[in-house]
Write a protein that binds this DNA or RNA. Structure first.
Lengths: 134, 134
DNA sequence: CGATTGGTCAACCGATCGGTTGAATTACCT
DNA sequence: AGGTAATTCAACCGATCGGTTGACCAATCG
């Protein structure tokens, strides 16, 4: 009972966990430091002026988000940065960055056409309502 | 007093705001829908079964994070998705994704060397403690 | 003008968060 | 076996979060 088999969260909740985990500056700093190599809880806790328990909790959050994994080394539990998750984030972000770019391009095209002819009276970009109707 | 000039948050806090804003699935959904075009608060609130005030708050959070901007159109306040912020996130993520990759490459090199000679007795990756000493 | 539409402000509520302290657990070391 | 180092568990605390309801602007329409 001590180790539940982790019911494998669906990707949307996974994203929530990852973003939420990285919303805390201390947690981001821990991630940054782990890029230099694996580290134990005590090593990670040393630079901050909070209790070791607090850092342990932070690591737990990162672990639940899939950002770090841990192995066993005697009584130590070294933390290891998982790279895979960054791909997940990059994919999510890239999708919307690209969409925004496309929107810019479309707007540019409209402006160009407006410039070529005289002024059509609808310069406002389409709302989602209008988009649904198409 | 009603409109403070926004003291321009430093990049680290900015990252906290962005990640925190995107940690909520409703907010991510709003962002997704805004890629199809600008939309008003009421339009954005319509699909969800929460109050308009709640959605208004969500939009406020996205705005504070710099993810959306708003203009005026009569009594309407159309929301517009800001693309710039995604670059900030991508830059942050890419940095650590790359670092993780480098770490893999270094490990591969070590393993190769171990394979060429007989076995050097230190297969464990360096800890941050050790990294500091170098 | 008064009524209505679009949106926000204010106060409140239960849940979660980041932090604490104290006790328990686990594995090593004489 | 006893001691101690590394980590986690448990209970608690104040602050913030996501949500509600009700009142309050602000701008348009009759």
């Amino acid at each position: 009972m001590t180790s539940a088999p982790e019911p494998a969260p669906e990707p949307d909740e996974r994203l929530s966990l990852v973003f939420s985990a990285l919303a805390d500056p201390t947690r981001r700093d821990i991630v940054a430091r782990l890029t230099a190599g694996d580290a134990t809880v005590n090593e990670l806790a040393e630079p901050y002026d909070v209790s070791v328990q607090a850092v342990s909790k932070h690591i737990r959050v990162l672990e639940d988000a899939g950002l770090v994994s841990r192995s066993r080394d005697a009584q130590r539990r070294p933390c290891h940065l998982e790279a895979e998750v960054f791909d997940l984030m990059t994919k999510w972000i890239e999708r919307y960055r690209r969409a925004a770019e496309d929107r810019y391009r479309r707007l540019d095209a409209v402006l160009e056409r407006m410039d070529a002819q005289d002024g059509p009276p609808v310069p406002t970009p389409r709302t989602t309502k209008e988009a649904e109707a198409s």
